[in-house]
Every structure is written in structure tokens, then in C-alpha cells.
Design a protein around this nucleic acid. Sequence first.
DNA 1: TCGTCAACGTCAATGGTGTTGGCATAAGGG
DNA 2: CCCTTATGCCAACACCATTGACGTTGACGA
Lengths: 233, 233
Amino acid sequence: MAKRVVPDAARQRRRRTKEGQVLTHDLIVETALRMLREHGAAGLTARRLGLALGADASTIYRYFRGMDDLTLAIADELFAHALTGWRATGEWRADLRSLGLSIYDAYLAHPQAAVLTASRVAGRPHEVAVDETILAILRTAGFPDPDAVRIYHAFIDQALGFAVLDAATLALPPATRAADEQVWQATYARLPAATHPHIAATAHLLVANMNDSAYPAALDLLLASATAQLAAL
Amino acid sequence: MAKRVVPDAARQRRRRTKEGQVLTHDLIVETALRMLREHGAAGLTARRLGLALGADASTIYRYFRGMDDLTLAIADELFAHALTGWRATGEWRADLRSLGLSIYDAYLAHPQAAVLTASRVAGRPHEVAVDETILAILRTAGFPDPDAVRIYHAFIDQALGFAVLDAATLALPPATRAADEQVWQATYARLPAATHPHIAATAHLLVANMNDSAYPAALDLLLASATAQLAAL
DNA sequence: TCGTCAACGTCAATGGTGTTGGCATAAGGG
DNA sequence: CCCTTATGCCAACACCATTGACGTTGACGA
């Protein structure tokens, strides 16, 4: 019986592209992330990605089933980043806080990717790893399973929700980010005070507020509530 | 000097399409919303939208500058729905709660549209109207402007964040929604318990939890915090 | 050393996409 | 009644994702 050699990632054939580039899954995902950052979501196409890699567009299909599959890989990459951005201390509230901010930061570090993949995160391997981590922290802290699951759910939804929204505003303008404040000031100024008196009255505060996130405060609120629940047991 | 007649929406020429349909901005947006619901984001194309309207794809460009412009109109429509879904009582906490849930419901009523437009809401007319309403409620309740702005920010980000995320899970499967629970149960079952012990231990709870939203509880938390702030003045 | 074969890169073609310019036509206003 | 303008259609353009055929390379077994 002929022993078929199972394809093994360890001994891959490393060929080279026309331009001499060596391709890997990771290199493609990284390049895609860079293109997203530099040219926005509309700038990430198979052809252009191939061009950036020094390869033909169709070559990408040797590594991913299609652009959709690539999107899933990008989503996964964001969570991989999130998992390396926090440190466990053993104190559950500190750990959750660190993990939440790490997720948030990973998203904000790649706003276009965050927006593009917002609806495709569920079930990605590293996203599942994050879920596992959150549940581990909560159950180790002593929360009974029903509470742990409820808090987990609120925690991850909150983190991703704020992250996606804040990333969205950050991802918006292809133009440089410097003139942003003036853009918004102009936007508020253009609103007729007659129809929007309350926005007009607080316009300066709204502009000043716009660049800091509401997430940390909301996260603290959630953690405080969880602390109270744990104490009530 | 010839007096140029300014185009006026009030006296439009209402022509008819080949199929006898009469087109309007609203009809196009409604049709687009229906197509999103029925065929998903990928199913909404200029040609197919034209087909559904009994019109040529290019005719859409008489009403919208492009598909992007149409997307903005769809985003606006969601907030228009949100504004009609709540009732003012005069009690600020009840009002905010009602408005928040109304925004959330409007998004969940059109999950695909919610996901598609998640990054394009800022500055839409009806979104601005929602902002104005929130600020009005808070300032009338007696919050000083800095607090009002901070709470407004947290409130709207929270509402939209949870809404977008929950809509994302709802928008995912082109298949019918009935078998969903089994899909997730299978997903969790496929996870090796060795690598994901905490998910494995709580799989049944996770599945049971999956269909109810964490938003109402989070909203109550925010309102309670705001109440405390107001009392401390 | 060499033959085999799978992995992987390229090329060319297909059908679908948003968008535009030209042209036809109907609806009112003068 | 005619003229302007809004609004419809058609044809064409450039680009897109995806696929199948084909060439090339490198690793491994004999």
C-alpha cells in the first residue's frame, strides 16, 4: 500500500514570485492590513494586493478561498493582536480591564480593518481564544457560571461595540487627520441654532470631547457592577 | 434679466419608468432596504436595485450621486425610524431609556442595513436630530453642559455599539434563522475541551444566552450612574 | 542521481460591478 | 403651443473577483 505523504506545513515548498518575493499567509495578511491603513477599504482589491506583493492577483487564491476568506483572516489577526497586548496579574478586575483595553487598542490600531471586519468576528479562532480567556478570568474569580456568562457577554459586546464605533470615526477621512477638528467645528457651526439649540450651545464641548473615548469609563462601570454582584454572593 | 426658475421639490416632474413605476427618493431607499433584508449586502447592486424598481440602473443616478450616497440615505433612514419609535414622558431617565431602546430596535429591524452603514452614521441629518434630542433631555434634566456632553457621548456610543454588534450576528446567515442554535451548539461542540475548557463547561449557557441582548442591562447601568452624578450636584 | 508529483505562480477569459455621456421624452410653465 | 428641464433609457468604460489551463519549481523516494 502506497504511503501517501500528507501535505505538511513544516516542509512547504517556498517558491518565489516574479519579483522574487516569498509568499506566506502571514505576509499576505500583513500586506492587506497595510493597504487598508494606507488606501482604505476600497483600496484593498485582489489586483492591488497582488501588485503590492509583487505577485499576480490570482496567486492569492492559492492561499485564500477568496477575498471573503481573506477578510476573515484579517479579522482573526486583530484578535491575535489583542491577545498579545495585555498581561495577567491574577486580580480579575485588573485582568479584565487590561484585556478590554487591549481589544479596544487592537481595533483602533487598524480602524479600516476594524470596520471592514466588524460583522465577521464571531467564531474566528483568536476571537474564540479571547472568549475562553474572559470566561477563565471570570470563573476563576469565583463567579457562578450563569453570572460569568452574562458578564462575559456584556463585556465582549461592550468592548467590540465601542471599538468598532470609535474606529469608524477614525477610519472615515481619506484626507489627513489634522484638519478634523475644524471640519467638525464647521459642521456644528453650519447647523441652524434654531433647529438645534442644544447642539449649538454645547458645540465647543462636543468638539473637545470628540477625540477621547467613552469606553474606559463604561468599562469601569461594568467592572464595578460585577464587583457588587460578586460581593452579594 | 431672465428669471431662472429654481428647481423645487414641490413641483417635480413625475415621469414613469418603462414598467410604469413612479420613482422617488423614498421609494428607492425603501426598496434598497427590502433588498438588503432579502438578499444581504452583496445582493444590493445598482443593476439589481434598478431591476427591482422596474427601472434602469443608471436612473438611480438621477436621485443619488452614487451607491455611496445611497448608503448614506439608508443610514439616515435608520435614524428616522429610531426617532419615531419612542415617546417623551418628561422624566429624563424614562425618556433616555425609551430613546436608547428605540435606536437599538431600529437597527435590529434592519440588520444588514445596520452593518452596512455602521461607519457612515456620523453627521446624517436624522442622526444629528437624535443627538439634539439626547442633549435636550440631559440639559433639561439639569445636567451641567460638561456632564451632559459626556453622558451623551457614552449614551450614543453604547446604543450604537451594542446595536451594530447584535445586528451583525443577526445579519450573518443567508440561511434561515431557525437552525441557528444548533449551528452554535455544533460550533462549541467542535471546540476541543482541552484547549477551551471554560467554553466547553459553559457551552449550554452560552447558547441559551446568545439570543438576548446585553444592551438593556448596560443601559440601565449607565442611567444609574448618571442618576448618581445628578444627585451629587 | 534522477523521476515524479504536488505546490504554487502566471496568463487569459468570464461575468458582474459602479459610473458616465448621449439621447429621447414627457410634464408643466410661459 | 412651444420650450425648458427633469427624468428616463441605452451603450460603453474601466475595474473587479474568480476560475481553469498551463508552466515551473522544489522536495522526496528509489
